[in-house]
Design a protein around this nucleic acid. Structure first.
Lengths: 157, 157
DNA sequence: AATAAATACGCAATATTATTGCAAGCTCCA
DNA sequence: TGGAGCTTGCAATAATATTGCGTATTTATT
């Protein structure tokens, strides 16, 4: 259950571009197609590769606003958390939601929506309606410098 | 250059799982394989699909710490921004970096690293070294409720 | 350091999957 | 209601991935 340099290179390539053919991937990592295919399959089976996804062009799809919402709850009881989690998991506008450390902001939520009007409605109709939500603070993305899903595997070397 | 219901369903499926075969995808969206393949190709060519990527299992790869860093700059001059952007783009630990609205926090940076020790070193050796960085505030992810790349296309209906 | 066991490799053959040409069927506008 | 432009499904073809197997390489053990 240990990864060598070739495995890591395979993972790196697939993180960047999973539409690469097995033949090209094999060449990039210095292997012939068959062992490369076998390694990829193994990495999938061992759970290193979670899933393959397509990333869409947001602005072309009229999704022009990305917002971060910092949310604080009145009480930190299990039922408060459960209710919040359940609601947020069912919002297609929410792409990320984390429980984070820090003074008052319990949750950090990332939302992708068409525009400010949509956002405002979403905030009022959905977030504000969740029991226990007290503080809500929004910030809006003006410019994207990095927007990846690719993680660094350097520490495994 | 307009998407019908079938196109949107294709995009939705590929966002969730791009490893689906064309045949299965065709069946899901109620098409036979050939027009389905043609539509996917068209969506790629038209730029709706940005790229295909593999998502990895972070904890299995020893990436146990996700952190958000809120960063403020001393001055909002072009060279300050450029220098910051350039540095951050070259950090493999940084998965997201946005310029955001708000009082003092100019940048929101998301970082994925093995542990707190690594994080501390990263902050001191990299972030703090960037000219003009004054305020730095970290929060750490304790629990992930949602961690997707999938965006909602409901507004197109 | 030698050797045995286990693992990983590349080639060639096979199987799977995607793509293309084409005729028939829709759709939409005049 | 007719016709132009698209879209579809089928069948044939092409591209791509996968598997068996003999050889080579690595790893562990003494």
């Amino acid at each position: 259950m240990k990864l060598d340099r070739t495995d890591r290179r395979i993972l790196d390539e697939l993180q960047k571009d999973s539409s690469i053919s097995n033949q090209d991937l094999a060449e990039k990592v210095g292997l012939s197609p068959s062992p490369c295919s076998r390694r990829v399959k193994q990495l999938e089976e061992d759970g290193y590769i979670d899933r393959y996804v397509a990333r869409l062009n947001q602005s072309q799809l009229d999704l022009k606003l990305t917002a971060y919402i910092q949310i604080a709850l009145d009480r930190h009881t299990p039922d408060r958390f459960e209710e919040f989690d359940k609601t947020v998991r069912n919002c297609p506008e929410v792409v990320e939601c984390y429980l984070v450390t820090g003074q008052s902001a319990d949750y950090t939520v990332k939302v992708i929506v068409p525009d400010m009007e949509y956002y405002q409605k979403f905030l009022l109709d959905t977030i504000t309606q969740i029991p226990g939500v007290t503080g809500v603070h929004s910030s809006f993305v003006m410019r994207k410098i990095v927007d990846n899903t690719e993680v660094s595997l350097q520490h495994l070397s």
